[in-house]
Lab assay of single mutants.
Amino acid sequence: TTVKLGDIKVTFDNPEKAKKYAQKLAKIYQLTVHVHGDTIHVK
């Protein structure tokens, strides 16, 4: 599962960890989390 934020891409083996990371980023940057299959976009 890949978390994308602009040019930053972080890949996790564990989808749950990816989701938590995405939510953490979203909170920090006051953005929202969008899940598209294996990719989680923070924008």
Rank of each mutant, 00 (worst) to 15 (best):
T1Q: 04
T1M: 11
T1N: 04
T1A: 06
T1Y: 14
T1P: 04
T1K: 05
T2A: 06
T2Q: 06
T2F: 08
T2G: 03
V3C: 09
V3M: 02
V3E: 02
V3L: 04
V3Q: 02
V3A: 01
V3K: 02
K4Q: 14
K4G: 04
K4P: 02
K4F: 14
K4I: 15
K4M: 14
L5H: 08
L5D: 02
L5K: 03
L5A: 04
G6R: 07
G6H: 08
D7F: 15
D7E: 10
I8F: 15
I8Q: 06
I8T: 07
I8M: 12
K9C: 12
K9F: 12
K9H: 12
V10K: 09
V10W: 15
V10Y: 11
V10E: 02
T11Q: 09
T11M: 12
T11C: 12
T11I: 13
T11P: 04
T11E: 08
D13F: 10
D13V: 09
D13W: 10
D13C: 12
D13Q: 11
N14R: 06
N14S: 12
N14Y: 04
N14K: 06
N14F: 05
N14I: 05
N14A: 05
P15M: 11
P15E: 08
P15L: 11
P15D: 05
P15N: 07
E16Q: 09
E16F: 09
K17H: 11
K17V: 11
K17A: 13
K17E: 13
K17P: 04
K17Y: 10
K17I: 11
A18D: 00
A18H: 00
A18P: 00
A18Q: 01
A18G: 03
A18R: 00
K19W: 15
K19E: 08
K19H: 13
K20I: 10
K20M: 10
K20D: 08
Y21P: 00
Y21F: 13
Y21D: 00
Y21K: 00
Y21N: 00
Y21Q: 01
A22F: 03
A22L: 06
A22I: 07
A22R: 01
A22V: 06
A22T: 01
A22E: 00
A22P: 00
Q23S: 07
Q23A: 11
Q23P: 00
K24L: 15
K24P: 00
L25S: 00
L25H: 01
L25G: 00
L25I: 09
L25C: 11
L25W: 06
L25A: 02
A26M: 04
A26G: 04
A26E: 04
A26V: 04
A26S: 06
A26H: 03
A26Q: 05
A26T: 03
K27R: 11
K27Q: 13
K27M: 12
K27F: 12
K27D: 13
K27S: 11
I28M: 13
I28Q: 11
I28E: 09
I28C: 14
I28R: 13
Y29G: 03
Y29W: 08
Q30S: 11
Q30T: 06
Q30F: 09
Q30E: 08
Q30H: 14
Q30D: 11
Q30I: 04
L31Q: 03
L31P: 00
L31H: 04
T32Q: 10
T32C: 10
T32D: 06
T32L: 07
T32W: 06
T32N: 07
V33P: 01
V33T: 05
V33N: 00
V33C: 11
V33S: 02
H34K: 07
H34M: 10
H34C: 13
H34D: 07
H34P: 00
V35P: 04
V35T: 07
V35Q: 09
V35M: 09
V35R: 05
V35Y: 13
V35S: 05
V35C: 07
H36A: 11
H36W: 10
H36G: 05
H36R: 09
H36C: 15
G37I: 04
G37M: 05
D38P: 06
D38E: 07
D38N: 14
D38A: 09
T39E: 09
T39L: 10
I40E: 01
I40D: 01
I40C: 02
I40L: 08
I40H: 02
H41A: 05
H41R: 05
H41P: 02
H41L: 11
H41Q: 06
H41C: 12
H41W: 13
V42A: 02
V42T: 02
K43D: 08
K43L: 14
K43C: 14
K43N: 08
K43V: 15
K43R: 13
K43Y: 14
